[in-house]
Nucleic acid binder design. Structure first.
Length: 643
RNA sequence: GCCGGCUUAGCUCAGCUGGUAGAGCACCUGAUUUGUAAUCAGGGGGUCGGGGGUUCGAGUCCCUCAGCCGGCACCA
């Protein structure tokens, strides 16, 4: 007999060789039905896998979030089986559960198309109906390799070969189909249900390496029930409406075109938004004791060679050649230029920390496939700054940077975001000792600031480790916006120095940092976050004064003039149209406030303010002076409200 | 850059197995002076992404280039 301890502390006796399923059935039929997997002493465990002794056992049921991962993983297996049944000769590789779904990578000469999805989904449903038990088997390593080689699954064989020597090779069987897999799985295919849907096909390199073969990845989504599935599909549909490219066109913010790939034509309204954001950032930087500079766009290649960028990023730099053979590069970033300003004249330890900011226009020749609306462009402006400081100032500078970033993000509507810590990459500059020092300094400082971070191994910059502040777009894609990088390398390479207390020359440490990252990307995220319905202070057009009859136009003009005088961005709509028409048009155009003016208002010197909202007509009739006062106040940028 | 898909009016999209292009919205004109999400009537607008080919005939089939979209790779 074995003793099983339940989460509530109760202990149950079960016969030897009993499985978590037996446990569940012993408790209640409905639990046995709802159970997905078990956690045995904290380890994930198949329900049907016999327990190997006394243990703490927890049953994970269908309604728990962890269950979704298992359902999705199972769905990936079923997808692979369906594909192999329908398309013989297709090799399987890997197929994990991911956020909202799963994928499976296949090797096949013929491309899959979304037109194949219907047939594949149908076959998947059949496999669910077959209710095949998932059976876990432990295989000998060499047998497993030989088996997969024999059936022509060279990717699987390679995977097994590369597993650590002591790894237990487990194979999961569903009917006559088997796959190398760590598990766990549901007891049978019937338990998964049919709340899944194939979403898209895409190319993906074997093992994520571009030197390897290109596989075909089929993405799917899977949920515990149809309600969840439909809710997810609905969310996606809603998210699509927030796409910054779509909203940007609809609101006439910007456009892009072939002749200037990866660069933005900012229209009047988009540029107003941009400038509002820039002015806000400028005030925040001034408050935080930064100085602002401006450096050249075209800089001789010799400087890029010194900094190390030429060697590492030459292919991604735009260059220009003069008549006499001089090669210049359009600056892809600002740091070497800032070091030049630091180097001009003498710097003393008394000048440190020196915080040098620039709204720096940068150009990078990004790979064609990487371009993506405003999120990934070739011409962009960073809210860049470099903090030249002493080693013992890294911690306090990191702390105040994180505080500033938090405050800026909160003002712009982002309360939570992910922070990643990226350490030394394989190809890098600087000695291991320098890296040890830089990584420790950044990590300690971040921890001291109380920030939770996710480790992102090997993803640092070539000159130093970095903190990445990641925001999410409407459909869940992550984009790095803010960053903080500790750099002991560039000051050395570019020979930056200051005179210390001891009257000797010393190297400063450089902190590279950005809050928005690039205006382009950040505005893209901002558009999607607000779905174009910006808070009043950011909205490019804040108020439309719309008259009901042309008799009120004179008063309407006066209202508009008064609002403009109070600093608001105002347009008038005196067209010969019904008020319904005007309200609809400006609501669709996401104008935050419509000031409706008819003869009633004109006679009483009032305005009817209608605020952008979900269907419900929120309006307020105010005296002109009160209305102006109220609007001017709510249009005040958050930082100016605080002072 | 790689794999796949897409590209028809300003926008969103129709156009079956090849027989020389349509809708809604937008735009323009006229009428309507209107009270909180679309007033009515009329009108203009497309070398169907570029180039090449097959065919008596190509928006439709084939090749090629470009751009965009979705992933992957890259991201100082």
């Amino acid at each position: 007999m074995i003793n099983v301890t339940l989460p509530d502390g109760a202990v149950r006796e079960l016969p030897d060789g009993a499985s978590p399923m037996d446990l569940a059935e012993g408790i209640s039929k409905s639990l046995a039905k709802k159970a997905i997997i078990a956690k045995v002493d904290g380890r994930e465990w198949d329900l049907t896998r016999p327990l190997d002794g006394d243990a703490r056992v927890e049953l994970v049921t269908r309604d728990q979030p962890e269950a979704l991962e298992v359902i999705r993983h199972d769905a990936a297996h079923i997808l692979a089986q369906a594909v192999q049944e329908l398309f013989p000769g297709t090799q399987v590789t890997i197929g994990p559960a991911i956020e909202d779904g799963f994928y499976y990578d296949f090797a096949r000469d013929e491309p899959f198309s979304t037109e194949d999805f219907e047939a594949i989904e149908k076959r998947m449903a059949e496999i669910v109906d077959r209710d095949l038990p998932f059976e876990r088997e432990v295989w000998d390593r060499d047998d497993a390799i030989a088996h997969f080689e024999r059936i022509g699954e060279k990717y699987k064989a390679e995977l097994i070969r590369d597993l650590p020597e002591d790894e237990v090779i487990t194979i999961y069987r569903q009917g006559d189909w088997i796959d190398l897999c760590r598990g766990p799985h549901l007891p049978s295919t019937g338990r998964i249900g049919k709340s899944f849907k194939l979403m898209k096909v895409a190319g993906a390199y074997w093992r994520g390496d571009h030197r390897n073969a290109m596989l075909q990845r089929i993405y799917g989504t899977a949920w515990a029930d149809d309600k969840q599935l439909n809710a997810h599909l609905m969310r996606l549909e809603e998210a699509e409406k927030r796409d910054h490219r779509r909203v940007g066109r609809a609101m006439d913010l910007f456009h892009m075109q072939e002749e200037a790939r990866g660069q933005v034509f900012w229209h009047d309204k988009g540029w107003t938004l941009y400038r509002t954001l820039e002015n806000y950032m400028r005030r925040r930087l001034e408050d935080a004791k930064y100085e602002e500079v401006k450096t050249p766009s075209l800089i001789d290649r010799s400087l890029w060679e010194k900094s190390g960028h030429w060697e590492k990023f030459r292919e991604n730099m735009f260059t220009a050649q003069t008549e006499d053979g001089e090669v210049l590069a359009l600056k892809p970033m600002n740091c070497p230029a800032h070091v030049q300003i630091f180097r001009s004249g003498q710097k003393s330890y008394r000048d440190l920390p020196l915080r040098m900011a620039e709204f720096g226009s940068c150009s990078r020749y990004e790979p064609s496939g990487a371009l993506h609306g405003l999120m990934r462009v070739r011409g962009f402006v960073q809210d860049d700054a470099h903090i030249f400081c002493l080693e013992n100032q890294i911690e306090s500078e990191t702390a105040s940077f994180i505080e500033l970033l938090n405050s800026v993000y909160a003002d712009l509507g982002f309360e939570d975001f992910i922070v990643k810590f990226s350490d030394r990459p394989d190809v890098r500059s600087g000695s291991d000792e320098t890296w040890d020092k830089a990584e420790k300094a950044l990590k300690d400082a971040t921890e001291a600031a109380g920030v939770e971070m996710i480790l992102n191994p090997g993803e640092g910059a070539f000159y130093g480790p970095k903190l990445e502040f990641v925001l999410r777009d409407a459909i869940g894609r992550d984009w790095q916006c803010g960053t903080l990088q500790v750099d002991f390398v560039l000051p050395e390479r570019l020979d930056a120095e200051f005179v210390g207390e001891d009257n000797d020359k010393h190297r400063p440490v450089m902190l590279h940092r950005a809050i928005l990252g690039s205006f382009e990307r950040f505005i893209g995220i901002l558009i999607e976050n607000y779905a174009g319905k910006f808070p009043l202070w950011l909205a490019p057009l804040q108020v439309v004064v719309a008259t009901i009859t042309s008799e009120a136009d004179g008063y309407g003009e006066e209202v508009a003039a008064t609002l403009r005088k109070a600093g608001l961005r105002v347009k008038t709509d005196f067209r010969n149209e019904k008020i319904n028409y005007k309200v609809r048009e400006h609501s669709v155009g996401k104008v935050p406030v419509i000031a409706v003016v008819g003869m009633k208002e004109a006679e009483n010197r009032q305005v009817a303010l209608r605020f952008l909202g979900e269907g419900n007509k929120q309006q307020e009739i105010l005296g002109l002076e009160d209305a102006v006062k109220q609007l001017a106040e709510s249009a005040t940028p958050p930082d100016l409200k605080r002072t």
